[in-house]
Amino acid sequence: MPYLEVGIGSALGAVCRMLTGVAVGGMSMPVFPWATLIVNVLGSWLIARFATHAMLNDSGHVARLHGFLIAGFCGGFTTFSLFSLEAVQLALDGHQALAAGYVALSVPLWLVAAWWGDSAARRAQARRG
């Protein structure tokens, strides 16, 4: 059963990633990989939010859906491999400064988003008492 939960979560996360790419692709400059940046920042927030919530509420719904939400959905939604490919492709296409900026911007944003997700879960838990 856990494999099925992770598989379904991964499929849903990947579809959401693709839909985000389609939505963002029509609104942004085509050279910069905005969609991947957005899904990875949002995914960093989500995974930290879910993981911290599950840790603080080990018998709650999020803890029971850990495989579906964290390994599955967040794993299928975020994409380090595409980020790597896009950074390399930008550099190979002659956009070295843009590639360097993409890498330099992405990692700190992911970390800040994860910190923010963790903080949001801790604040929610404190409000619940």
Results as ranks from 00 to 15, higher is better:
Pro2Ala: 08
Pro2Asp: 13
Pro2Glu: 12
Tyr3Lys: 05
Leu4Thr: 12
Val6Ala: 04
Val6Asn: 07
Val6Cys: 05
Gly7Thr: 03
Ile8Trp: 11
Ser10Gly: 15
Ser10His: 01
Gly13Asp: 08
Ala14Asn: 07
Ala14Met: 08
Arg17Lys: 11
Met18Gln: 15
Met18Thr: 11
Leu19Lys: 12
Thr20Arg: 13
Val22Trp: 14
Met27Phe: 13
Met27Ala: 13
Ser28Asp: 02
Met29Pro: 07
Pro30Ala: 08
Val31Ile: 15
Val31Leu: 14
Phe32Arg: 03
Phe32Val: 01
Phe32Trp: 14
Ala35Tyr: 00
Thr36Trp: 12
Leu37Phe: 15
Asn40Gly: 12
Asn40Ser: 10
Leu42Met: 14
Trp45Asp: 00
Ala48Lys: 04
Ala48His: 03
Ala48Ser: 10
Ala51Pro: 01
Asn57Ala: 06
Asp58Gln: 07
Gly60Leu: 01
His61Gln: 06
His61Arg: 13
Val62Asn: 02
Arg64Ser: 05
Leu65Lys: 09
His66Lys: 15
Phe68Cys: 01
Leu69Arg: 04
Ile70Leu: 11
Ile70Ala: 13
Ala71Gln: 10
Ala71Cys: 10
Ala71Lys: 08
Ala71Asn: 09
Gly72Glu: 02
Phe73Asp: 01
Cys74Ser: 02
Cys74Asn: 07
Gly75Val: 06
Gly75Asp: 07
Gly76Asp: 09
Phe77Leu: 07
Phe77Gln: 02
Thr78Gln: 12
Thr78Met: 12
Phe80Ser: 00
Ser81Cys: 06
Ser81Tyr: 05
Glu86Ile: 03
Ala87Gln: 08
Leu90Asn: 03
Leu90Ser: 04
Leu90Asp: 00
Ala91Arg: 14
Asp93Gln: 15
Gly94Ser: 11
Gln96Pro: 06
Gly101Cys: 12
Tyr102Thr: 00
Val103Trp: 09
Val103Glu: 02
Ala104Trp: 13
Ser106Thr: 14
Val107Arg: 12
Leu109Ala: 14
Val112Cys: 14
Ala113Cys: 07
Ala113Gly: 07
Ala114His: 08
Ala114Gly: 13
Ala114Pro: 06
Trp116Val: 04
Gly117Ile: 01
Gly117Phe: 02
Ala120Ile: 00
Ala121Ile: 02
Ala121Trp: 06
Ala121Gly: 06
Ala121Ser: 08
Arg123Ile: 01
Arg123Leu: 05
Ala124Met: 06
Ala124Val: 01
Ala126Gly: 03
Ala126His: 03
Arg128Val: 02
Gly129Leu: 10
Gly129Ala: 13
